[in-house]
Amino acid sequence: MTAFEFAEGYSAYLLLVVLFAIGLYGMMMKQNLIKKIMGMSIVQSSVILFFIVSAYKDDATVSVIDYARGVTNPDLYLNPLPHTLMLTAIVVAVVTLGVSFALVIMIYKRFKTLHEPTLRELMK
């Protein structure tokens, strides 16, 4: 398999890994806490999409038996498990976002800034 074929075949996964890296970059390098939260959200979304992409099949449908399509060939149906798992993961991501915003509000009320170097200066 040449590098080009690899990139073509796994393009979605490669994109998601790049997305994961972008999120990590945002969390590490950005100095504003809200931007850090955005990075965190990107990381979580990339993982969620990773599961979804892993369940993708060409020309397949939802896992409800459809006699018109035929019931003997499993290639015609998607694996529904990753999607359902990711519903739970989305809930977790939303709750994490909620908690992080609550923390950011508390930080802003106390220090009147969300700029990390300034915060560190203020907390010495």
Binding site: M27, Q44, V47, S100, M106
Partner: peptide, 16 residues
Amino acid sequence: PYSAFRYLALGTVGAS
């Protein structure tokens, strides 16, 4: 709150 925020950021990366 700031310490908790840092814990949250790193903990979420760990979970991801």
